[in-house]
Each structure stands twice: as structure tokens, then as C-alpha cells.
């Protein structure tokens, strides 16, 4: 286990990322807002929400080992 990365769990609720759920390692010290770029969705940040440990966050929080992220599409209506 290296000390430059941390393990997090990502659940995808984006149709184009279906079936890609699982554990992954990301660089230590990154903020939640950066995760979409790390995961290859940096160009769609306006269309995506990140839920961290059952709470919507504002993206400024630092990712911590064991974090559980759910990546959701922005829904404009309901």
C-alpha cells in the first residue's frame, strides 16, 4: 500500500458509467470537487452531483480514506 494515494468507493449513477462501481485509489490531499476530473468526467461537472458519505457536499472537502461517493446526474426537474 503506498502513502501517496487513498482508497475510496465510487458508485456511479450516470447511465454512461453503469457497471463501473467499485473501490479505487486516488491521490491523497485532493478535494471532492477534483474527483470528477480524476475520474474522467471533468468536462461535465455542471451536469453531475457528488454525494459524499450520504450527504451532498459543496466540493471543498478533502477526500479521506474510505469515503463513499455516489456520482449522480443533475436533475433539473422532478
Amino acid at each position: 500500500m503506498d502513502d501517496k494515494t487513498i482508497g475510496i468507493h465510487v458508485t456511479w449513477k450516470l447511465p454512461w458509467r453503469a457497471g463501473q462501481d467499485g473501490e479505487m485509489r486516488v491521490p491523497k490531499g485532493r478535494r471532492v470537487a477534483e474527483i470528477l476530473t480524476l475520474l474522467g468526467e471533468g468536462e461535465r461537472t455542471e451536469d453531475i452531483l457528488v454525494v459524499r458519505n450520504q450527504h451532498m457536499c459543496d466540493g471543498t472537502e478533502e477526500l479521506l480514506p474510505g469515503d463513499r461517493l455516489i456520482i449522480l446526474p443533475v436533475i433539473s426537474g422532478g
Binding site: 447511465p15 452531483l49 436533475i75
Partner: peptide, 23 residues
């Protein structure tokens, strides 16, 4: 636009349930 061309056309407004149930 992903929400209109991929999400709504596949899941409809029910996709909101994944947001609300997870928060």
C-alpha cells in the same frame, strides 16, 4: 446535454430518486 439526452430519456424523472434517497 447528458441530462436531457441520456438521463431523462433512459430513466425519466424517476432518476431524482437516486438523489433524494442518497441524501
Amino acid at each position: 446535454t447528458p441530462i436531457t439526452c441520456e438521463v431523462f430519456r433512459k430513466y425519466g424523472t424517476a432518476s431524482m430518486l437516486n438523489v433524494t434517497n442518497n441524501v
